[in-house]
Design a protein around this nucleic acid. Structure first.
Length: 572
RNA sequence: CGGGGCGUGGCGCAGUGGUUUAGCGCGCAUGGUUCGGGACCAUGAGGUCGUGGGUUCAAAUCCCACCGCCCCGACCA
């Protein structure tokens, strides 16, 4: 590819919409272009990277026996009604109507469609197991798209689905996927961790996430410093330390304008642990519930939704006033009759606590949980925080931020049961298919490589996913002698199957050197008058910043050697 | 959805009631000099100042509404 004929347009100045390093570099290098919030075009350079990532994924999926297919991106409403997710997805789902007014969605994921195929095609235990995968665009109307391509509303995902006759089969396919995913991310040159996760809206049982450690990443991972156990804080149930106040009679205390845990604990000069905060959850189709948590913890909404239903959300201020006759910040569990109360298990048996009085400007002191209120169940409802104890070994948990590259789920029969995807077993019994679901975000691999590998001069693409392997930088490209040498070197590199971007632009040298580094092409061969005259050519390795000089005859073999070395570093 | 910020040639910005052609840097075009790390000179093209209303003799500038984008907060690839 000749640079002069290409659609590569680098930007000298930083695009103002970009916040993270990786996003800035992808925009500056002209890999992507934003069309609207969370919606991007992949320009030729960016698309080449996506294609190379796709190829690695295909190879690894085929290695575990998966078959590629392609499902529609648009789906009629009925199968989503059958699974219940037409409601569960809520505003995250893009919806549209056809000319006859029938409802459709742009698929946010494909479990329903896979299950629909399975119920038509899979009839016998002899048809199983199966693994099906696709690489396709997904649509999710995220409440807040951000970080460029990392959290977007249209994105490319490799999703695969395993179909089995029993749990043992699922365990096997789940393990195969974990292994395939490890190989994929390694081959793409990424550093990552595998952590325990929660099923979320996908549902079902066991789940793992593949997380790249990145500051500012959206996932918060708890890591045990003793036994090395790692889990997403959305899922992990760490142990907290018990705390209780002094036993005392209940009494009201004026706390004018003091609403938040911070304000009340400062105003009354007590620890945050001494407060009980009340979070009111409502759902359109279910009775409201009141959640109690100690003041120093946050509610884990994942647990609430999984336990009580996905339609539950924190109530609006209007709803709170309606049910409690007090404003947010002053509500509490004392004297509540018609609302079921669930409390975090750290509150069990606590005395002398402080909570809202259901009266504006007042709190209650001396709350004794067992004596004063009726808790229907004590559960772990809190988010883990730094310093909590590991549930496995009791070691201290530390938290770090990460980017989720992929996730694997054991679905079980969640979808097959609802959509009636069954098979006849060897005894002639009708049984639901046991399913697993597995996803990888392709753009996230690209973005993650940028975040992890870039330096002050630009991107450093791992050789395995680089848009080109060699950047042929030609100085004085109009000079006939140089042009001739460059053509010959291009030919011999092409014969050795290198992908090459030839910078034949008639620009000053600095621009070309800087662009080659910004674009992150692994190797750069410079062809200029000096080299041609002295038969000495420089090969610059982007990753190590080392330059190797060699004669013209040695260029190809040097490049081959460097390429092998770069692949070896991926350590697959 | 709540809070904060921003919309002016392709990109980054200045101009915040009144010099008839709305500026600057980069980029782009043409010619020339350069040419191993973002060169220089000359000439030139390109903008209904996000959209729609309103106020005014006069609006990029003031007011209202809407749209869009970015950032911070309850989700996921």
């Amino acid at each position: 590819m000749k640079y002069s004929r290409s659609l590569i347009r680098t930007l000298k100045e930083e695009p103002k919409e970009a916040e993270t390093k990786g996003h800035r570099l992808l925009l500056r290098g002209g890999f992507i272009k934003q069309l609207a919030a969370g919606i991007h075009s992949y320009l030729p350079l960016g698309w080449r990277i996506i294609l190379r990532i796709s190829q690695i994924i295909r190879e690894e999926m085929e290695r575990i026996g998966a078959q590629e297919l392609l499902l529609p991106a648009i789906s009629p409403r009925n199968i989503w009604e059958e699974s219940g997710r037409w409601q569960e997805f809520g505003d995250d789902m893009f919806r549209l109507k056809d000319r006859k007014g029938r409802d459709y969605c742009l698929c946010p994921t494909h479990e329903e469609i896979i299950t629909e195929i399975a119920r038509a095609k899979i009839k016998s235990y002899r048809d199983l197991p199966q693994i099906w995968f696709q690489i396709q665009t997904k649509f999710r109307d995220e409440r807040r798209p951000r970080f460029g391509v990392i959290r977007s509303r249209q994105f490319i995902m490799k999703d695969s689905y395993s179909l089995d006759i029993d749990e043992a089969g699922l365990d096997h396919n789940y393990a195969l996927h974990e292994e395939a995913y490890r190989r994929i991310f390694k081959r793409c040159g990424l550093e990552f961790e595998v952590v325990e996760a929660s099923g979320g809206l996908m549902g079902g049982g066991e789940s793992k996430e593949f997380i790249a450690r990145i500051d500012g990443g959206e996932a918060l991972i708890a890591h045990c410093t003793r036994c090395n156990f790692q889990a997403d804080t959305e899922a992990v149930l760490g142990k907290g330390e018990f705390f209780t106040g002094e036993d005392s009679p209940i009494s009201e205390v004026a706390t004018p304008q003091q609403r938040t845990v911070e304000e009340v604990s400062d105003y009354l000069d007590v620890s945050r642990k001494n407060l009980v905060k009340s979070i009111f959850f409502t759902a359109p189709d279910k009775p409201p519930i009141l959640i109690l948590l100690r003041g120093d913890y946050e509610v884990n909404e994942n647990i609430i939704k999984a336990k009580f239903g996905f339609s539950y959300n924190p109530a609006s201020p209007e709803e709170i006033v309606k049910f409690f006759n007090a404003e947010p910040g002053f509500i509490g569990p004392v004297g509540i009759k018609d609302i079921t109360i669930y409390a975090d298990d750290l509150l069990k048996g606590t005395r002398g606590m402080i909570t809202g009085a259901n009266k504006n400007g007042y709190h209650i002191r001396g709350l004794n949980i067992d004596r004063d209120i009726k808790v229907s169940e004590f559960l772990n409802l809190r988010k883990v925080k730094s310093g909590d104890r590991c549930t496995k070994c009791g070691g201290k948990l530390e938290l770090y931020q990460g980017l989720e590259l992929g996730q694997i789920f054991k679905l079980g029969t969640k979808y097959s049961a609802k959509l009636d995807a069954t098979f006849l077993d060897e005894k002639g019994q009708l049984r639901p298919i046991i399913m697993g679901s597995y996803g990888i975000g392709l753009e996230r691999i690209m973005a993650c490589a940028c975040e992890q590998k870039a330096d002050e001069s630009g991107i450093v693409w791992p050789i395995s996913i680089a848009p080109f392997e060699v950047y042929l930088l030609i100085l004085n490209p109009e000079e006939p002698m140089i042009k001739k040498v460059a053509d010959e070197i291009t030919q011999s590199l092409t014969h050795s199957h290198f992908s090459i971007i030839i910078d034949d632009r008639d620009l000053s040298a600095g621009i070309k050197f800087n662009d080659s580094e910004l674009l992150g092409i692994p190797m750069r061969v410079t062809i200029g008058p000096r080299g041609v005259k002295e038969n000495r050519f420089d090969i610059y390795i982007r990753e190590t910043k080392k330059t190797i000089s060699c004669s013209r005859a040695q260029i190809v073999e040097e490049c081959v050697r460097i390429k092998q070395e770069l692949y070896r570093r991926l350590n697959v």
